[in-house]
Write a protein that binds this DNA or RNA. Structure first.
Lengths: 111, 111
DNA sequence: CGGAATCCGCACTGATACTG
DNA sequence: CAGTATCAGTGCGGATTCCG
């Protein structure tokens, strides 16, 4: 279960859909680095889990809208706090990484 | 960045370390299904990111304790809300899944 | 446009052996 | 005990192609 919720792409999709419903191609453009395959797979899983609603408009060219279900909306609050956390602490983490890498390099040098 | 934080094993490690500091083997026992290799890798990443502190006790047999850093502790709150969410809604999700699977099966049958 | 299907490489796993 | 190292097997994810 955690696997699904803690999935990178799922988090991003839910974060984006909370603002407004989006089309497939809009999602793909806004989520940097997602392949078409993974976006499709992710959306299917979220739909299956009842977190996202998929609406197909029978027009030419085809148009598919995605939006959060009420259940999906309840998840959004905790998602957002996670996203906010990463934004707030990413510089701290960057510092920690460089320090760690330095310590490791020094250790090798000393040996 | 989200990759690291949204990682399955990282979440579980942080959730466990919040209660109390743990030894390597204790973590491994309590996290079901984690391989020794992935636990090692996960702990190294968390240490590098400054979320977990690693303490080696120079005794025989060796003993290594892991605990959350202050930075890691700030992450725990949002982690916990995520874990709580999954626990609270997992039956809802299970229902959604079976319904979805039924709809898909019916669709195939009708074709 | 929004997929489904296929192929393929790589990361993860599991097992085993070895070390401080 | 807490790792590191290595190898074989598997499954996920990327790139590409084709379809309604």
């Amino acid at each position: 279960m955690l696997d699904r919720v803690a999935d990178k792409w799922s988090l991003l999709v839910i974060a984006l859909l909370e603002r407004r419903h989006l089309r497939f191609s809009e999602l793909r453009r806004q989520i940097d680095g997602v392949s078409q395959r993974m976006l499709t797979v992710t959306l299917r899983q979220l739909e299956r889990d009842g977190l996202v609603k998929r609406t197909v408009h029978p027009v030419v060219p085809p148009r598919v809208d995605y939006e959060l279900t009420p259940l999906g909306a309840t998840l959004h609050d905790t998602i957002r706090s996670l996203v906010i956390w990463t934004e707030e602490h990413q510089t701290e983490i960057a510092v920690a990484r460089t320090e760690y890498d330095r310590r490791m390099a020094d250790q090798v040098e000393a040996s």
